[in-house]
Design a protein around this nucleic acid. Structure first.
Lengths: 341, 341
DNA sequence: CTGTTAGCGCGTTCAC
DNA sequence: GTGAACGCGCTAACAG
């Protein structure tokens, strides 16, 4: 039979309360007593039953998620996943609230962070914008002892305690590596559509893509990136013009959102000369385009995984427990029309 | 506050025990009483706390895993994942035992299934061989009320209640789809290495690959598959000869195991004309080959996911609870050197 | 500093 | 048929 706290207590000759204090690293135990308990734990190979602990604790973790009110499918999916996590809140002892802020709006984001801080939650998850005022707002939360994790887009050199998202530089390299293989041996140009170079994930993807193409494939030239602001309408206009004006175009890399516009532009002028297209985020739109062959490959970050990871990390940090980084790595998924989930 | 059995009891005007009987579908409750309880559950939106239930039950699930004693990295990893799940057994209330059987040995597999049956476990997971005697042994387990899930390799038209593995036909199509894009516009031959055409997953992968190449890429011809028996030595010989004798070779698809041999052959005669190589299963060997550029792409099934999924399904079936199929889908991972985990 | 005690939400004997 | 009471493994007051 699996040992319990009772076994530890009698083995160490102390009471349950003392065992509990040692287990949870709380004060009020003399060093020698603690040693005895630790020895008993070692000897009996005790592993605490987390479910029972949670049951007894009955603690709830108020968590605030701050996400942009963006009109693209990925952000909608992200908000959906957060809402879904909220529904499960009862079972996971979390109380999740969502704050939506205008996209790419630094002052609004700062206000939201300060508003979250006023509620004194157990933790905050935020889709960050890479700017100094945001860094300062995060520092204020950290100063209050409220852990912050960045979601999807990171904020390096800040007080955030974790980033729940993919390695965007690697994602860009992956896209470049694939595009290079697709176009190997050909000579021509590749168009790039970004959302905004103010957000860190887009900048990093661009860097990675460039690195993977420039050196190994000198015959492929990269056009300067078009900023679509993640807005379908704007992306549509830019891509339409690009398709019309650039006859040498061999490939297209869309590293932001708003792919609805990209797909419409491709549909409207399906060029005689086929174009290889790589985009990000598996949404109903990109999935459809994969199936019809308009898009070749979609790189994806699983919004559900990111949200659940953020919650796990926040709860762990709120309890002062360590996080196994490797276990919280978000992978870069690659989808063709053939391996769609 | 989340409703508990107490709330249900008082709402329905009955005792805790009665609520419990209704919840677990046990006899000893008159129909009208049951209705009242059900109504209360509906009204309050009660969801039972599974953790607390397990705590009270103290039930453990004895599970038997039957896997081939194969010498390749994938099977080794699979066995490792099962062992790891066994370590977590205490926390997850499972008691996992592993039975290893000689590879491709039908009578031995049947004996193992019957041995498992004698232990009366809560469930059995098995890497199946597609043969009639195996089907019969599975039927015997099912007749005893012991749920069986197939792992990695399926056994269709049998009494197995679930398959924890990837869609191998889709995996083959994915490989073909990638290979086609890599070699688009070129004219030449593609070599195929299989383990054995007697095993179901390999046959399905081959079919998928052929379907994805033949029609869309008429300029690419497929050589007849070489049977490497998943043995590195044999694969090495076959690939070496192929590389020497087939000057037109543009690509190589290795859909079985024994990739150690493939990689050695490629290393020994790195051809001036580059060859596109796609293989299955991310192992230390294929990972290394991805990093050095010897292999372009690896398709992977996550052994850890498969094992954990099998356990979840087995526990659910043992409790007579339904399984959300979509949630247990094992995805086909695609790895380039750039998105390695 | 340490021990006692009363639950957390649920399952399960036993009586009634 | 139905209900009261105890316990699963752990935490958290409250005493001492």
């Amino acid at each position: 039979m699996k040992p319990t706290v009772h076994d530890i207590a009698s083995e160490a000759g102390v009471s349950l309360a003392t065992v509990d204090r040692v287990l949870n690293g709380r004060p009020g135990v003399r060093a020698p007593t603690r040693e005895r308990v630790l020895a008993a734990i070692q000897k009996l190979g005790f592993v605490r039953d987390v479910a029972a602990a949670n049951l007894a604790k009955g603690r709830v973790y108020p968590l605030v998620f701050i996400v942009p009110a963006n009109d693209n499918s990925f952000m909608a999916a992200l908000r959906g996943e957060i809402a879904a996590a909220g529904m499960r809140g009862a079972q996971e002892r979390t109380a999740i609230s969502i704050l939506t802020v205008p996209a790419f709006d630094i002052p609004a984001l700062v206000r939201a962070l300060d508003a979250a801080r006023a509620e004194k939650p157990a933790g905050v998850a935020v889709v960050a914008i890479d700017a100094e005022p945001v860094r300062e707002a995060v520092a204020r939360l950290a100063a209050d002892g409220i852990p912050v994790v960045t979601l999807v887009s990171d904020l390096p050199d800040s007080a955030r305690s974790h980033f729940a998202g993919i390695d965007n530089e690697a994602a860009g390299r992956t896209a470049g590596s694939l595009m290079g293989r697709f176009l190997d041996g050909r000579r021509g140009a590749i168009g790039i559509i970004v959302g905004s170079l103010d957000v860190r994930d887009h900048r990093e993807r661009l860097d990675g893509f460039r690195a993977a193409i420039s050196a190994p494939y000198p015959d492929l030239s990269l056009l300067s990136p078009l900023e679509g602001r993640d807005e379908p309408e704007r992306v549509h206009q830019m891509v339409s013009r690009l398709l019309a004006e650039e006859p040498e175009l061999l490939g297209l890399y869309s590293l932001g959102a708003g792919n609805r516009g990209l797909i419409r532009a491709l549909e409207e002028r399906r060029p005689a000369r086929p174009i290889r297209v790589i985009a990000h985020e598996l949404t109903p739109h990109t999935r459809g385009a994969l199936e019809t062959g308009l898009i070749d490959t979609v790189l994806n970050q699983d919004a559900g995984h990111e949200v659940r990871s953020a919650i796990r990390v926040l709860k762990a940090r709120a309890d002062g427990q360590p996080v196994i980084a490797a276990q919280e790595r978000i992978r870069i998924d690659i989808f063709l029309k053939d391996n769609l989930p």
